[in-house]
């Protein structure tokens, strides 16, 4: 049976790991390559790096981090943050990323999704969607790391990018991110039940039950978390053991 994937996410700023609560209050917490090695050996199913480096002058550091991580970790690595062009995607893949996640650039230029999927294969292209509740069963997407609102409906957008060839959706709830009160399972199930491609749940996980709910209520194919792993509250093994006890298929 196909396993539900547990994906630790590292926010990387100028080559260092940070994690924000509600996208602010960054706390430095280590070397991404060392962190990645730990997650790799602990049984993470994939790794995700989100580059939040503001200045493009400092982005070279990311390529080095990706390269070193790929040389040490033999599990899939997704890299996102500031990906704007086919050339950006190409450079990340060339340095060892397995998938590239695109957020703002896909919203501003939807053609990029189809072009990237055609050139590198759907499985390489993850579309990251930051969604905020806007009413009953309605969410709008935000761009620029959650700073800029749009009037684009999250569900319609996810359907559109799936049709254009995106390989999966990394769906972050803006309302839940950093709150530790659980994923927005209504958002997840609304999107997941409307598209064929996998949805990765993100934003809000605070305890083991939340992981299970993301699968059982949200219908997610994969579960992404950052701070809960990062500060050692739970290990990957804790999560997988718990999910297995709930009869959710995981790779032990």
């Amino acid at each position: 049976m196909l396993k539900k994937r547990i994906i630790p996410c590292l926010d990387v700023d100028r080559g260092r790991v940070v994690k924000g609560v509600n996208f602010v209050d960054l706390i430095d917490a280590g070397d991404p390559v060392e962190q990645a090695k730990i997650y790799n050996s602990e049984g993470a199913d994939e790794l995700c790096f989100l580059d939040i480096t503001a200045s493009s002058d400092d982005r070279e550091t990311l390529f080095e981090v990706v390269k070193k991580t790929a040389e040490n970790c033999f599990i899939p690595l997704t890299v996102g943050g500031g990906v704007r062009t086919i050339d950006d995607i190409s450079r990340l893949l060339h340095h060892g990323a397995d998938k590239v996640s695109i957020n703002t650039a896909a919203v501003e230029n939807i053609d990029l999704v189809a072009k990237a999927a055609k050139k590198y294969g759907s499985s390489t292209i993850v579309i990251a969607v930051d969604a905020k509740k806007n009413g009953d069963k309605s969410w709008n997407i935000f761009t620029h790391g959650g700073r800029k609102p749009t009037d684009i409906d999250a569900l319609e957008y996810c359907i559109e990018v799936a049709n254009l060839g995106a390989g999966e959706i990394l769906l972050t709830s803006m309302d839940r991110d950093g709150t530790k009160i659980g994923f927005d399972n209504e958002l997840l199930s609304t999107v997941s039940s409307s598209i064929d491609i996998p949805v990765i749940a993100s934003g809000g996980v605070g305890n083991l039950e939340h992981f299970a709910e993301g699968v059982l209520k949200g219908g997610a194919s994969a579960l992404l978390a950052a701070s809960i792993f990062h500060f050692g509250e739970y290990s990957i093994k804790d999560v997988k053991t718990y999910l297995a006890e709930q009869n959710i298929a995981v790779r032990i």
Binding site: K4, D196, P198, S221
Partner: peptide, 10 residues
Amino acid sequence: YKIPHMGWNE
């Protein structure tokens, strides 16, 4: 069943 078949399988 989601397509692509993506992830760890036996």
